[in-house]
């Protein structure tokens, strides 16, 4: 592990940039004059599950949004496999926070999943039986096949989150960026989502999730990125998720109880 850390932080950075599904260099984002994310470097390891953790207001969601160009960044460089966003878009799936949309919107579960096929369908191409079959297959993987015809407002929070994940699966991406996928979901949904994400990783895909539950970091993720407006630590869970790095990221706000089970 330490060997990996040493190479990652050392001479192979240029090489890493080309391999890394998402690399940030000096990313700075500001909201109304105040820096939300300041001069942040991050190098996501391919084929791994990475948790972005940090206290409330640390800029975790902002980091993802800035990487995807959803919020403008003041400075810095973002590359996906060494390439700019425009070139890499088709290989990226983004799952926004569940609360960011209006679930009263008049549409059905299957329609939402089909939105994940937009890059294939474009504006004019006809929706065919094979597209619908693929969307149903994605619903199957998150255990939501029976809900295809439901209006999205009739779903529980956990079911809504699964539908969002199914939409991302429909994108058949190489990099999955998820913003708080476990926020406000039931235990069964959490287990279903983590199983799907681990399957993706085992298939060689890269998963990055903004995460807030420190007690599950070790069981769910391979790597962590600790952020508190500035980068605090990055590496394998064993190396970077320690009492010291957490103290540095959370400061006095760290609840000791949240760390039960951590070395």
């Amino acid at each position: 592990m330490s060997l990996e850390l040493a190479t990652r932080d050392g001479a192979r950075i240029a090489e890493d940039l080309g391999r890394s599904p998402l690399a940030l260099r000096g990313l700075t984002v500001s909201y109304g004059g105040e820096a939300a994310v300041f001069s942040t470097d991050m190098t996501v390891a391919p084929g791994a599950m990475t948790a972005i953790i940090g206290p409330n207001g640390a800029g975790k969601s902002t980091l993802l949004k800035a990487a995807l160009g959803i919020v403008p960044s003041l400075a810095g460089q973002v590359t996906f496999w060494g390439q700019p966003l425009q070139t890499a878009r088709a290989r990226i799936a983004y799952v926004p926070q569940r609360a960011s949309v209006d679930w009263d919107f008049p549409t059905q579960v299957l329609d939402v999943v089909i939105m994940g096929l937009y890059r294939e369908l474009g504006i004019f191409r006809r929706l065919r039986a094979r597209h619908i079959a693929r969307a149903m297959d994605c619903l199957d993987r998150v255990g939501m096949r029976d809900f295809a015809e439901r209006q999205i407002g009739q779903l529980s929070g956990g079911q809504q989150q699964r539908v969002f994940l199914a939409r991302a699966l429909a994108q058949e991406a190489d990099l999955y960026l998820l913003d708080e996928p476990f926020a406000g979901v039931d235990a069964a949904t959490e287990a279903a989502i983590i199983a799907v994400l681990k399957d993706l990783r085992d298939a060689g895909r890269t998963v990055v999730a903004v995460h807030h539950d420190l007690s599950t970091v070790e069981t769910y993720f391979d790597r962590v990125f600790l952020l508190n407006r500035r980068p605090v630590a990055e590496g394998t869970v064993a190396a970077a998720f320690t009492q010291d790095t957490l103290q540095a990221a959370y400061g006095g706000r760290l609840n000791e109880g949240a760390l039960v089970g951590t070395a």
């Binding site: 959803i70 960011s100 939105m115 937009y118 890059r119």
Partner: peptide, 12 residues
Amino acid sequence: TFDEGFAQSLGL
């Protein structure tokens, strides 16, 4: 209209 953030991530 439904999900602006997701639409932006697609490049819309």
